[in-house]
């Protein structure tokens, strides 16, 4: 038996916002420690890794590890039945091929129960190495989102360059070229507004911009996000959900032939 209750049920809605444009179906791995997911996009150049710790839930019970396959488009439809302030309880009986989602209003005056069929999905798990990155930049997630959206109307690829002075996003297209630099800045009162650059080595990498736009759909999960870069390795874009878990996106760089 698997059962887990989230007081802030809309966390799942927010997570789905970031997932559903990247992957259409995925296995959720349920274990006594929590819920995780690893999935590649259809062109196999990007990977998303989600981790929600068991103690992020109000009541968490997972009697045995199990993978449950879900169509994320269908899951998003089901989640429309949940109000933004509703609690959300997920239940999956080991003997059944479905999941039950229960949405309850905080005032306990509305109760919705939806059952959704599970599916068998073939998926390969990749071993993500624990990289030491050349550069790690933390910045407000809303700022990152705005930058990649703005640049995506100018070009298709983005060159990300990190030096001790800051991070620069560059693109070019028919319109012209654009460079946006964010310097390290820790003068604001709120830490979530800071931009910090942790640099081992200066690094420059080029990526398909549309993936960054997709990753930025997780903006509502966290005020801060981080970009971790190493020479000729996939970038990691992370949205940490406090001590509840994280969603991490990996994207292969474009490398000169």
């Amino acid at each position: 038996m698997f059962e887990a209750k989230l007081i802030q049920g809309n966390l799942i809605k927010k997570i789905m916002e970031g997932l559903k444009d990247l992957v259409t179906e995925a296995n959720f791995d349920l274990s006594p420690g929590g819920v995780s997911l690893q999935a590649m996009d259809s062109s196999h150049v990007a990977l998303v890794a989600l981790m929600l710790r068991g103690d992020a839930f109000e009541n968490y019970r997972c009697d045995r590890p199990r993978s449950i396959g879900m169509n994320l488009v269908n899951l998003s439809k089901v989640l429309k039945c949940a109000g933004n302030d509703d609690t959300m309880t997920l239940k999956a009986d080991d003997t059944q091929n479905n999941i039950t989602l229960v949405f309850e209003s905080q005032a306990e005056d509305k109760y919705a129960e939806v059952q959704m069929e599970l599916m068998d999905i073939d998926s390969e798990h990749l071993g993500i190495p624990d990289n030491t990155y050349d550069a790690i930049v933390k910045m407000p997630s809303a700022q990152f989102s705005q930058i990649v959206k703005d640049l995506s109307s100018i070009g298709d690829t983005v060159t990300v360059s990190v030096t001790k002075d800051g991070i620069t996003f560059s693109t070019s297209g028919d319109v012209g070229t654009a460079h946006i630099t964010c310097k390290q800045n820790t003068s604001m009162e709120k830490e979530a507004d800071h931009t910090t650059v942790n640099l081992e080595h200066p690094v420059t990498l080029t990526f398909a911009l549309r993936y960054f736009v997709t990753f930025a759909k997780s903006t509502s999960l966290s005020h801060q996000m981080s970009i971790s870069l190493s020479k000729e390795l996939p970038v990691m874009v992370e949205y940490a959900m406090g001590d509840m878990g994280h969603i991490r996106f990996y994207l292969a760089p474009k490398i000169d032939d």
Binding site: E124, L126, A208
Partner: peptide, 14 residues
């Protein structure tokens, strides 16, 4: 031209 390898070619099997 720029090439983009699959993510699996970087990470491989666990």
């Amino acid at each position: 031209a720029m090439k983009q390898r699959s993510i699996a070619s970087f990470f491989g099997s666990p």
